[in-house]
Computed example of a mutant assay.
Amino acid sequence: MIIGIGSDLCNIERIQNSLDRFGERFTNRVFTEVERAKAESRPFTRAGTYAKRFAAKEAFSKAVGTGFKRGVFMRDIGVVNQRSGAPTLALTGGAKERLDAMTPPGHAATVHLTMTDDFPFAQAFVIITSHPIEGASG
């Protein structure tokens, strides 16, 4: 069952402006170490890589219905890749707590993420599903 849907469209030029103006102060405040390493390894698409991840964070915050309040912070939402290469989100802190709180008892949540970019835009969609845990009551 779907328990949350969110999307975001991000302007890559806006992210480039933030990178130019604030540099590491911006990247350290918004992105996880894994995300920074991925973006910095892509010199020709650095801003687009950051923009897709920024959009993913925004999309998740919409999917859980909080935006960036009630303890949900950008650094608590990190884009990672599954073994298959497919992107998903690694959640910590308030983002994980919010997801856990909205997941029905006896269920586990799965975060589905897709991202794309076509200059000057980056886009992300997040769909959160829940499924019963085998053997769980509730």
Score class of each variant (00 low, 15 high):
P43S: 01
G65M: 07
T32Y: 03
G65D: 05
A39T: 04
T45I: 11
K69N: 14
F31H: 08
K57A: 08
V64T: 09
A56P: 00
E58C: 04
G67H: 05
T66I: 13
A39E: 06
R53D: 09
F68P: 03
F68E: 05
F44P: 00
A55R: 04
F60Q: 01
V72D: 07
K38M: 07
G65A: 10
A47N: 11
A51K: 05
K57Q: 12
V64F: 09
G48A: 15
T27L: 08
F26I: 10
F31A: 03
A55E: 08
T49E: 14
T27G: 09
K62G: 06
S41H: 06
F73L: 14
K57S: 05
Y50D: 06
A56F: 04
Y50G: 02
S41F: 01
K69Y: 12
K69V: 14
T66G: 11
E58V: 03
V30P: 12
G48V: 02
F26H: 08
F31M: 04
M74V: 00
N28G: 14
R36D: 02
E33V: 13
G71M: 11
G48T: 02
T27M: 08
P43Y: 03
G67M: 09
F54D: 01
S41P: 09
G48R: 07
T45S: 15
F44T: 13
G71D: 12
K38P: 00
F31D: 09
T27H: 07
T27V: 10
K62F: 04
F31L: 04
R42I: 00
F31W: 08
S61Y: 00
P43M: 02
E33D: 14
G65L: 07
A56W: 02
G48Q: 14
G48P: 03
E40C: 05
A51F: 07
F54H: 09
R42L: 15
R46D: 02
E35P: 15
N28A: 14
A63H: 12
V30F: 12
R42D: 05
A55Y: 12
G48M: 02
V72F: 06
F26G: 07
G71T: 11
S61Q: 02
A59E: 06
V72Y: 05
R46T: 06
T32G: 15
A63G: 13
T27I: 09
E58N: 06
R29A: 14
A47K: 03
M74W: 15
A59H: 10
A39V: 03
F73S: 13
T66V: 12
M74R: 13
S61L: 01
A39K: 04
N28F: 08
F73V: 09
G65Y: 05
S41T: 03
A56V: 05
R70S: 15
E35Y: 03
R46E: 08
G48D: 10
G71R: 11
T49L: 00
V34C: 07
F68M: 07
M74N: 09
A59C: 10
R29G: 03
T66H: 10
S61D: 02
A55W: 11
M74E: 08
E40H: 10
R29E: 04
A63T: 12
G67N: 11
V72Q: 04
T45E: 11
F68V: 06
G48N: 06
